[in-house]
């Protein structure tokens, strides 16, 4: 088979540049295979993350020819001819080579108020497939953070990271919001502290999602509607005031220990 040339970004927080590696191309290989062969021969210190090599763990995120992708699911023979460019995710600080500091995401995860279900009845909860299906779509998320990487709210505006959770966590909030058992109310939190309003629905996140989760249509838009309803709809407002509350406020939720 022909050769493959890969231009891989090498460097650290202090700076770096693309380095070219040319190898024989093997049948059926993905970009990560070529990176592994570079590691095993020319550059054993080439830093990249990977685990499952099957699109299930979301470790090997990178920007391949400029597009945020998983290296393990991108076939070399499906890319246009010519050198392949592999760069680290741009939204996160560089550690080394293709490895970035994704701790922003873990900090956001730590802020999510936990699920708060009612006590479990003998023999378990009753939930129907149609009730769990919506949440199951969001729970397919492999936390590759490609949606975070591509989201222009934080990609182009570092300052926004302080008050913007990003698409990965909007689907998490949507999942909890739609969870059949949950009694926590995170709508004020999502609006006031997680920056849901910054998202202007350009759907870039949906486009790069390797799990094909319809992030914008199925999570962000419904979440925006619920949050807005909670704030402005006078009927809903009155309803919340006079009905027995089953949902808690965000403040209470944040300190409420999970079962």
């Amino acid at each position: 088979m022909a050769n493959v040339t890969m231009r891989v970004w090498r460097g650290d927080a202090g700076g770096g540049d693309f380095e070219s590696y040319t190898l024989e191309q093997n049948e059926g290989e993905v970009v990560l295979d070529v990176i592994h062969r570079i590691q095993a021969t020319d550059a054993p210190d080439l830093a990249c993350r990977w685990n499952c090599k099957a699109g299930k763990c979301g470790s090997c995120s990178a920007e391949i020819n400029g597009k945020p992708s998983l290296m393990c699911m991108t076939r070399v023979d499906e890319l246009p001819e010519g050198p392949i460019t592999v760069a680290p995710m741009r939204t996160f600080p560089i550690i080394r080579d293709l490895v970035t500091d994704v701790s922003f995401n873990y900090a956001m995860a730590a802020k999510v108020p936990a699920l708060l279900p009612p006590p479990m009845p003998e023999g378990g909860y009753t939930m129907f497939q149609e009730d769990v299906a919506r949440g199951q779509e969001f729970r397919k998320c492999i936390e590759c953070f490609l949606c975070q990487d591509v989201c222009h709210v934080i990609r182009d505006h570092e300052d926004n990271k302080a008050h913007y959770a990003g698409p990965r966590f909007f689907i998490r909030y949507a999942e909890l919001e739609m969870h059949p058992l949950d009694t926590n109310d995170r709508r004020d939190l999502v609006r006031e502290e997680m920056g849901l309003g910054y998202c202007n629905i350009t759907k870039c996140c949906t486009e790069v999602c390797p799990e094909h989760i319809k992030i914008t249509d199925n999570a962000i838009i419904p979440l925006k509607e619920r949050v807005v309803d909670a704030q402005y709809d006078p009927v809903a407002w009155l309803g919340r005031k006079i009905r027995r509350r089953t949902k808690r406020s965000a403040d209470e939720a944040a300190v409420q220990p999970a079962p």
Binding site: A114, L115, P117, M120, G123, G124, Y125, T126, M127, F128, Q129, V132, G135, Q136, R139, L176, H179, L181, A258, P259
Partner: peptide
């Protein structure tokens, strides 16, 4: 398995709403 549901897991369901 049941305790995982208390923590948020969403398993596939039977017709009568069990795991």
């Amino acid at each position: 398995v049941l305790e995982l549901e208390q923590w948020g897991a969403l398993f596939d369901r039977t017709k009568d709403g069990k795991i």
